[in-house]
């Protein structure tokens, strides 16, 4: 890693392996995420991007390897993943807002339950984040009434309410109409500008190019190539990277 100057990496992944049945999805993955960095993971479908992301907060259990977060190994047996997950926000492709609650309750559930915050206090924090994603007016709305873009912005606000150190985005715009992808990306750009550490799995190459500090290209369960956006998009070395990117850059 070139950027390892003074600070410790926030996330360090070492020798990560994961297979579903006989299918090896991740094969010996190693990479670091420095505090404040925005890392985008790109690659074809089925290359293991999402699984890698889900291993970072243990939604998938790795078969081997380590996932260090703030110096603690999440992959170790009996580690209190719940406590560590509080510091890792996640945004899903399918939004996964809690259908039995309104927008505000979606945001306050975790702070009230886990941080023992007073309801009023949690609501204040939630309103602040809802405002930052432009949905303060929808606080009392039921989640079913929202559009896809609004749902995803609520999902981001919900994750932010736990004041995470790291945000994981699992193809946050893939389930959205092309027209409303922009509103979600705008929120993510804002987050990146505020210095949030982010790992983003995405097919939005423009976003990867302009926002990220580092781009990771995955192919068949391994990291085929990684580097700055300029390196990856300007001068891809690996033939698979070139092949993959050519499809996007032709458009």
């Amino acid at each position: 890693m070139t950027q390892t100057v003074a600070s410790e990496p926030m996330v360090r992944i070492e020798g990560l392996r994961k297979s579903f049945g006989s299918h090896e999805v991740l094969r010996d993955i190693n990479f670091d995420v420095m505090p404040g960095q925005v890392v985008t993971i790109i690659g074809a479908s089925g290359s293991g991007k999402s699984t890698l992301l889900r291993c970072i907060n243990l939604l998938e259990t790795p078969d081997a390897g380590h996932v260090w977060f703030h110096g603690e190994d999440l992959a170790a047996q009996h580690v209190d993943v719940n406590r560590l997950r509080e510091k890792i926000g996640m945004v899903f492709q399918g939004f996964n807002l809690f259908n039995n609650m309104n927008v505000l309750d979606n945001c306050t559930l975790a702070p009230v339950t886990l941080k023992k915050m007073k309801k009023a206090e949690a609501e204040q924090v939630a309103m602040k984040h809802l405002e930052s994603v432009g949905l303060a007016d929808f606080a009392r709305a039921s989640v079913q009434t929202l559009s896809g873009g609004q749902k995803q912005r609520v999902a981001i606000a919900r994750a932010l309410c736990m004041q995470p150190d790291l945000m994981l985005f699992d193809e946050p715009t893939s389930a959205l109409d092309p027209e409303i992808v922009g509103e979600v990306l705008e929120v993510m750009r804002g987050l990146a500008a505020d210095g949030m550490t982010m790992v983003v799995v995405t097919h939005e190459m423009a976003f990867a190019k302009t926002v990220s500090d580092r781009v990771v290209f995955m192919d068949k369960g391994v990291i085929a190539e990684e580097g700055t956006p300029a390196e990856i998009f300007g001068n891809p070395k690996h033939p698979r990277t070139r092949e993959f990117l050519s499809r996007y850059l032709d458009d």
Partner: peptide, 27 residues
Amino acid sequence: VDKGQMEAARSLGLSQWQAMMKVVFPQ
């Protein structure tokens, strides 16, 4: 109930029991 509901709750740090009681079971 959609599996994503449980995952979202767990990703916020809720325990299995908390996620079940507050999110999955009511649905």
